[in-house]
C-alpha cells in the first residue's frame, strides 16, 4: 500500500507527467473547440471520431509523399473536411438522424482509412519512416526552471489548442456570428424567422468541426508519434464530445473536461510504464471510465436546448 502510494507520489511530482497531460489534452481539446460551434448550432456531432481518424491517416500519407509534416497537417484538415461535407449533406440538407448518420460515418472512416492505408503501404501495415511535427521551444519562457519544460517546450499544436479556447470563447459570446450560431441552436424556428439561414450556419459549423478535427487527428499521428494504426483515435472523438457536454457547451467548461481526460490518459500511460502489478488493459480503461463517470456525475439531465440533435425542417411551417 505504501509502495503504491509512493509510486503515485512519484508520478504526480514529476514535471514530465504534467507535460504529458498537456500533450494528451491537446487532441481532445482541439476537437472540442472545433466542434463546439456545431454543437451550439444544434448538431449532435459524434462523427468527429471519424473525422479525426481520417485526418490521422491522411497526415501520415501526405507527409510520406510530400516530405513535410505541415503539408501533412493541411492534407489531414482537407480530408477530414471532405468527410464533414458528407456528414453535413446528410444531416443538414437531407435531414437524417444525427446519431445514426454519425455512427455510419465513423464506420465508413474506419473502413476507408484502413483500406487506403493497406492499399498504399501493403497488407502488413508497416508504418513508413516519416518526420513528425517539430517541437517549438519558446525563447526565454522555455528556459524557466520547471514550468519551461512543461508549458513552453511543446508541439506548436499544443499552443494552438490552448490558445483556441479564449478565441472560441470570444467568438462564441462576443461576436455576431457567435450569437447567430447560438440562436440557430437554441430555437431554429425563431432564428429562421428573423432571417438567419439555419441550414447554411449549421453546414458551415460542421465544416469547421471537420477541419479542426482533421488537425487534431494529424496531431495524433504526426505530432505525438509518427505512426498510423487502424482505429488509432480509440474513442477520442467521443471523449471530446463528452468534454463539451461536461462543460455545458461552453468553451471554458470544455477546457476543464478536456484537461480531466488528458490527465486520465497521462495517468494511464504512467501506470502502464511503471507496471505496478496492474494488467495494462485495466490501465487503458482509465480514460473511458473517467469519461463515463464524468457523464454520470457531472452531467445529469442536461440538454441546453430542445432543438439540440433534431433535424431542422423549414417546411413544417408551411405544411399545416
Amino acid at each position: 500500500m505504501a509502495d503504491l502510494l509512493s509510486q503515485f507520489l512519484f508520478i504526480f511530482t514529476s514535471p514530465d507527467f504534467y507535460a504529458a497531460v498537456l500533450r494528451l489534452t491537446t487532441p481532445i481539446l482541439l476537437v472540442a473547440m472545433g466542434s463546439i460551434f456545431c454543437e451550439r448550432a444544434g448538431i449532435m456531432n459524434i462523427a468527429i471520431e471519424g473525422f479525426m481518424l481520417m485526418g490521422a491517416m491522411t497526415a501520415v500519407v501526405v507527409t510520406y509523399y510530400l516530405g513535410s509534416p505541415w503539408l501533412g497537417a493541411l492534407g489531414a484538415m482537407l480530408a477530414a473536411m471532405v468527410l464533414s461535407i458528407l456528414f453535413a449533406v446528410f444531416v443538414v440538407i437531407i435531414g437524417t438522424d444525427h446519431i445514426v448518420t454519425a455512427v455510419a460515418l465513423n464506420v465508413l472512416s474506419l473502413g476507408a482509412t484502413s483500406l487506403i492505408f493497406r492499399r498504399i503501404f501493403g497488407a502488413m501495415s508497416t508504418t513508413p519512416e516519416i518526420t513528425g511535427l517539430p517541437i517549438w521551444r519558446i525563447p526565454l519562457l522555455g528556459d524557466l526552471p520547471v514550468l519551461g519544460n512543461i508549458l513552453f517546450n511543446q508541439s506548436p499544436l499544443v499552443y494552438l489548442a490552448f490558445l483556441s479556447v479564449p478565441i472560441a470563447n470570444f467568438f462564441m459570446f462576443r461576436t455576431k456570428w457567435g450569437l447567430n450560431i447560438r440562436a440557430v441552436g437554441e430555437t431554429p424556428r425563431a432564428a429562421d424567422t428573423v432571417g438567419l439561414n439555419v441550414y447554411r450556419i449549421r453546414f458551415y459549423t460542421i465544416l469547421v468541426s471537420g477541419l479542426v478535427a482533421g488537425l487534431a487527428g494529424a496531431f495524433l499521428s504526426i505530432g505525438q508519434t509518427t505512426i498510423f494504426q487502424e482505429g488509432m483515435t480509440a474513442g477520442r472523438g467521443y471523449i471530446a464530445y463528452t468534454a463539451i457536454v461536461f462543460g455545458k457547451w461552453n468553451p471554458l467548461g470544455a477546457l476543464a473536461g478536456a484537461v480531466i481526460f488528458g490527465f486520465a490518459d497521462a495517468l494511464q500511460l504512467r501506470i502502464q510504464a511503471l507496471g505496478m502489478g496492474i494488467p495494462y488493459q485495466f490501465a487503458l480503461m482509465i480514460p473511458y471510465i473517467f469519461t463515463i463517470l464524468a457523464i454520470v456525475f457531472a452531467v445529469g439531465r442536461v440538454s441546453w436546448s430542445a432543438a439540440y440533435g433534431q433535424p431542422y425542417r423549414r417546411v413544417e411551417r408551411s405544411v399545416d
Binding site: 464506420v107 465508413l108 474506419l110 473502413g111 476507408a112 484502413s114 487502424e230
Partner: peptide
C-alpha cells in the same frame, strides 16, 4: 475492411 465501407 472494404465491407465496413459498404456497410456504412
Amino acid at each position: 475492411t472494404l465491407i465496413y465501407v459498404i456497410q456504412a
